[in-house]
Amino acid sequence: MMKMKTRPVEVLRRGHMACPGCGLSLGMRMVLRAMGPKMVGVVVPSCVAVTSGPFPYTALGVPAFHSAFEIAAPTAAGIAAALKEQGKEDIPVLAFAGDGGTFDIGLQSLSGAADRNENFIYVCMDNEAYMNTGIQVSSATPRYTWTGTSPTGNPRRKKQIMEIMAAHRMPYAATASIAFPEDLTRKIQKAKAMRGTRFIHMLSPCTTGWKIGEDMAVKVAMLSVETNVFPLYEIENGLSYTITYSSRNLPVEKYLMAQGRYQHLQPDQIQAIQAETDRAWVDLQGRAAKRKEEL
């Protein structure tokens, strides 16, 4: 008899409010599928909140709370603490926030929660600008990137959120990509099995803000990994680095030129981005090698 294959339970339901081709909604779907329906979700103003839908509709198949912009982490901490008091410590709490809600306005409260090692999973859906309000620069926006408030290109470098989180010596922090669903799923499931503050940084290509086609989110996400712009790795206890995917080391130009937001770049700017990416990649490999030596 033929073995029946069952489809996984989709927690993010059809009819969500994301733009067509949205990378973030794919990421939400994968994260929630890996978590399963037994969890409590926290969303804050961001594209995640838009995607989740307006009253009386919701795309989320789990109990969830649309909390305030800068408090994803303490919201999750408060719910987790209440569930513990009610003897329901087995129900995990997962918070979604955007890059603005994580790198900028929510950084203090996230740092506080991570410092106390509160018990929740935090997923930063990073689309590298304030997309929910219409493409304004954030501290997650990479250098030279066009946004509505950096019309000639962002002069600042992207804030290194993973290093900031690692500095908290939290149990688990990992990058994840919609182009690598197995890697993403494994990381979510690994995080789910742990306790304390766990952080996932997911690059979420935005068709509108990145000026890419509706069929390009996964490809651009894939290129971000293959060019080492967004390497896939995990950090345990803030110190132990593991690179979870060996990239093809493609030139960054391939990633940049796939997107409308970089069409204004000059050759020297592309070279500068390449040099910076190379430096960061060598640094990351060094950290991972140090871990191997220790093992």
């Binding site: 409590v40 926290v42 709370f65 909390s67 305030a68 800068e70 408090i71 303490p74 919201t75 999750a76 901490a77 408060g78 719910i79 603490a81 209440a82 569930l83 008091e85 009610q86 203090q108 409260s109 740092s111 506080g112 929660a113 410092d115 106390r116 509160e118």
Partner: peptide, 22 residues
């Protein structure tokens, strides 16, 4: 007892926990 990093987070924790029924 949560020794939070600001009053803003203190209220964030309390309101979330209260919604959860605590």
């Amino acid at each position: 007892m949560m020794r939070v990093e600001s009053e803003h987070s203190a209220m964030a924790v309390c309101l979330s926990a209260s919604l959860a029924g605590a």
